[in-house]
Design a protein around this nucleic acid. Structure first.
Length: 483
RNA sequence: GGUCCCAUCGUCUAGUGGCCUAGGACAUCACCCUCUCAAGGUGGAGGCACGGGUUCGAAUCCCGUUGGGACUGCCA
């Protein structure tokens, strides 16, 4: 028994959409679940107006990032024009196609108040030949019903009378999506067409074309089974839009989401693993995923939940893995790949790898994405420290108490044993002497040394920063305060 | 307008006629922990759109209503 042959067929007209990523994943899962499954990538680049080569690279690198490996391809439709020409020739021979010279204006004029959508069949029986401005239309059956067998939704019926004679090749000669897609699916012996729900209404047309192709090609190729995935929507419950919504998979990679977390989250959109555990390994996904279990209703792409999940994955990393994997955001100069438009805020000469390894465990449990690391630990590498002004004003400002506290801290820290525990103790005592609880006493010190009121644990940070740099910053803050 | 799809907490979902007093996760609230911020722990609030059937019994099946969405291109 041969395994399923599935394909992911994106068009390179923009960033890699998260909805596309999910389609790719679900296809991949179906292929991987069966030892004989085959996953194919086909770039649908017949629209030469809108395609750009960089988007093709984007698709491939994003899939690579997600770990969706290919069994065949990537194929490109732009390499298959001969096949499409053959499809067209055969379909013409079989009487399935006709030439049409109607312009958009013609159609609009004829339509008038008539609400009936689609092409009116004006040229269907005019028996036009090929001309300078003739498109090729498919002659759809006027009667009967086409039933789309959808694994997720069950049988969906379309009355053939409601399907108009759609264009298969432009007057320029360029083939269109419907024909190219079906020709390739049929030639590639695709068994499962898994894609977004927006394609459901294309399915009957494609089935008609497939059958027509069978009719004129001698050998019949079994129709594929369809699976239309629920749409990914935004808060307004509209299909995720390239213009308005954060849909670029690349941007999630740049922000420092882990591919395994991203894949896990994507899998949760329209599907769920058995049991109560949502964090599941890729192997579990492969094991449990079934198209039949995919839900029917649209899913909101919830960045908050994605982020939470990513935090969980980050915390599951070993400290070494954390250091290694965060490298593009921490020391991009040493990395082959680095996020675009994201600088850590320090230079190679300022950065101290050994220090970072020690600091890393302090931030690993406090960040949800790698992009959050740098702002949190910049004070370890950059002198003088960059102050968050409101924080400075609030904790130190011109307050005599704050100034006294810093002054005492300088004295105590000059003598203190330089360990987190000892500094902790010393700060408690400093606070007590001034009638301050630790919570209050640590704030000016934290601000003086780190520039902010929130950050990694203070005393561990001081220990790692070292006595000299700590004292220097306390003095600088003092000077700054009395100005 | 036409065709088609969809409908369980705010969100993602579990649920396939009795195990449902509807379970989990995110978000949210409270408390605990605590040097800040997180993380973690405990607890709370919160849902079967509505109306009819079918059935001893319905979140689950059927019909209708309402609501949302997709498509309706010589784009994919």
């Amino acid at each position: 028994m041969a395994g399923p042959r599935v394909r992911f067929a994106p068009s390179p007209t923009g960033y890699f959409h998260v909805g596309s990523a999910r389609s790719a994943l679900f296809n991949w899962l179906v292929a991987r679940r069966d030892p004989d499954g085959v996953f194919i990538l086909r770039i649908e680049d017949t629209d030469t107006e809108r395609n750009r080569e960089e988007w093709v690279d984007g698709i491939i690198s994003a899939m690579n990032w997600l770990g969706l490996d290919l069994d065949e391809g990537p194929f490109r439709q732009s390499d298959n024009y001969a096949q499409y020409a053959e499809s067209i020739a055969r379909l013409i021979g079989g009487g399935h196609l006709y030439y049409c010279d109607c312009t958009g204006d013609d159609l609009a004029a004829r339509k008038g108040d008539n609400k009936t959508p689609g092409y009116d069949g004006h040229c269907r029986d005019r028996d036009l030949g090929h001309g300078p401005a003739t498109a090729l239309r498919f002659k759809t059956p006027r009667e009967g019903v086409t039933t789309v067998h959808d694994v997720i939704r069950g049988d969906v019926e379309f009355a053939n009378a409601t399907i108009d004679d759609f264009v298969v090749a432009k007057s320029s000669g360029a083939v269109l999506y419907a024909l190219a897609n079906v020709t390739d699916d049929r030639n590639d012996r695709i068994t499962h067409v898994i894609r977004g729900e927006e394609h459901l209404s294309n399915a009957p047309k494609q089935m008609m074309l497939w059958e027509a192709l069978n009719h004129v090609s001698g050998g019949a190729v079994a129709l594929p089974v369809y699976a239309h995935l629920p749409l990914l929507v935004n808060e307004q419950r509209k299909k995720l839009s390239k213009r308005k919504d954060p849909v670029a998979t690349e941007s999630y990679r740049d922000q420092g989401y882990l591919p395994e977390a991203f894949v896990n989250y994507l899998a949760l959109l329209g599907w769920s693993p058995r049991g109560d555990q949502e964090i599941v390994a890729r192997s579990t996904l492969i094991e449990q995923f079934r198209l039949e279990d995919v839900s029917h209703s649209p899913a909101f792409f919830d960045v908050k939940k994605l982020t939470h999940l990513n935090g969980e994955y980050i915390r599951m990393l070993t400290p070494d893995e954390f250091v290694e994997r965060s490298a593009p955001w921490v020391r991009p100069w040493s990395c082959e790949w680095r996020p675009t438009d994201r600088e850590p805020g320090w230079s190679e000469s300022q950065f101290d790898g050994e220090l970072f390894s020690k600091v890393a465990p302090l931030v690993q449990e406090r960040v949800a994405t790698f992009g959050e690391i740098a702002p949190m630990i910049g004070f370890f590498f950059v002198d003088p420290v960059a102050f968050d002004e409101p924080a400075f004003a609030k904790s130190i400002g011109n307050d005599p108490l704050g100034q006294t506290l810093l002054a005492v801290a300088v004295e105590r820290f000059e003598e203190a044993e330089w360990s987190a525990a000892a500094l902790h103790e010393a700060t408690i005592e400093i606070g007590e002497a001034l009638g301050l609880v630790l919570r209050k006493a640590q704030a000016p010190i934290r601000c003086a040394v780190t520039g902010a009121l929130v950050g990694p644990p203070l005393f561990e940070s001081l220990e790692l920063l070292g006595r000299d740099r700590t004292l220097q910053r306390l003095r600088e803050a003092l000077a700054r305060s009395s100005k």
